[in-house]
């Protein structure tokens, strides 16, 4: 069973400067986008529940750099904004969805935890943990039946692996030889409960062995390690047409959601992981290799912040709310005569 990809492979096959630059800029954009969400939530422009991605950027970006964003079918959990962005869902539409506006990716019907974009084959974020596993298998089954060469990619966290659907799905994916890639973003916590206190096997990739699915574990903070491991994984799924499981060891810098004070993690632990910031790791390496200067990076940052402040946020703010008359839309096919409930008017 493969573990971390061999370092030699990484050195011999390091990414081209252009790809490194793209990944670094995309991760920076994702970081700033999420920080904007944080601010907008504080002033109640975004309501409900909000789960942010900082710290884990290398996972979604590194994996999708090895896949075909917009073509491969991607499904994930509730920490989903960045996965949507990586698949090509326009940032304006993601932000408008968080604002609950009619111009959002789901017309304001979904919200933060439920981004969808059929045109980008982004098959959704899901608030219910463990729900997406079998859906990913179903997507892969459909792709296989139709003879397509796209694959299904399922990004979920470690705590989801304690749901029954994890085991049901792995078994089916293996027995039916489905082209599905499972990415486990192991950030060590399910809300406020650490993996040590909830899960018998800490190495998630080892749990997959019983289903005869190849599995590996990699550092989820170094995007080049993620990319390398993901290339092996994606190639396996696409070429062999059978499942693969990749565990990425990562960490969320913020709480589980905005209502999480974070008292269950020690300051020392958080500080230790903050030293493994995926942006800083790649930036330092690129500076060392003479591919970028700190000034160029800061200039990107300015551009990104301007784009968010001048275009993305105003788009969301100035967009209309969903029409209250649409309250009963999208339940069934448009002209269905289904009774839509609500206050009854009484008999004649």
């Amino acid at each position: 069973m493969p573990g971390y990809p061999p370092a030699a492979l990484l050195l011999e096959d390091s990414m081209k400067t252009a790809l490194r630059k793209k990944l670094l800029r995309d991760m920076l954009f994702a970081r700033r986008f999420e920080e904007q969400c944080y601010q907008d939530y504080q002033v109640r422009k975004i309501g409900g529940f909000l789960h942010l991605y900082p710290g884990q950027e290398a996972c979604a970006h590194g994996v999708m750099a090895a896949a075909r964003p917009g073509e491969d079918y991607v499904i994930t959990g509730y920490r989903d904004h960045v996965h949507a962005l990586v698949c090509g869902v326009p940032a304006k539409e993601v932000m408008a969805e968080l604002y609950g506006k009619a111009t959002g990716s789901s017309g304001g019907f979904g919200g933060s935890m439920h981004i969808f974009d059929a045109s980008k084959h982004f098959m959704g974020g899901y608030a219910l943990v463990g729900g997406p596993f079998p859906l990913a298998a179903g997507l892969a089954k459909a792709l296989k039946m139709q003879g397509r060469d796209e694959i299904a990619i399922c990004f979920l966290g470690d705590a989801a692996n304690n749901q029954g659907t994890f085991h049901e799905t792995l078994n089916m994916a293996s027995v039916w030889e489905l082209p599905v890639l499972f990415i486990c973003e192991n950030n060590l916590y399910g809300i406020g409960t650490s993996i040590e206190r909830s899960t018998a096997e800490l190495d998630q990739y080892k749990r997959v062995a019983a289903y005869r699915i190849p599995a590996a574990q990699a550092d989820g903070q170094d995007i080049e390690v993620v990319h390398e491991a993901a290339q092996i994984a994606v190639n396996h799924v696409r070429e062999k047409g059978t499942p693969y499981f990749l565990e990425l060891k990562t960490y969320r810098f913020r709480g589980h959601s905005m209502s999480d004070g974070g008292a269950y993690r020690s300051k020392e632990e958080v500080e230790e992981w903050r030293k493994k910031d995926p942006l800083e790791i790649l930036l330092a390496r690129m500076i060392e290799d003479g591919e970028i200067t700190r000034e160029e990076y800061d200039a990107w940052d300015e551009e990104i912040l301007s784009e968010i402040e001048d275009e993305i946020v105003p788009f969301a703010e100035n967009s209309p709310d969903p029409d209250p008359a649409d309250l009963t839309r999208y339940v069934l096919v448009e002209d269905d005569p289904y009774v839509h409930g609500g206050p009854s008017k009484g008999g004649a």
């Binding site: 304001g108 979904g110 919200g111 009774v339 409930g341 609500g342």
Partner: peptide
Amino acid sequence: TGYDTPFPYT
């Protein structure tokens, strides 16, 4: 009552 829809967001 509520409407015969999934629980709405906005």
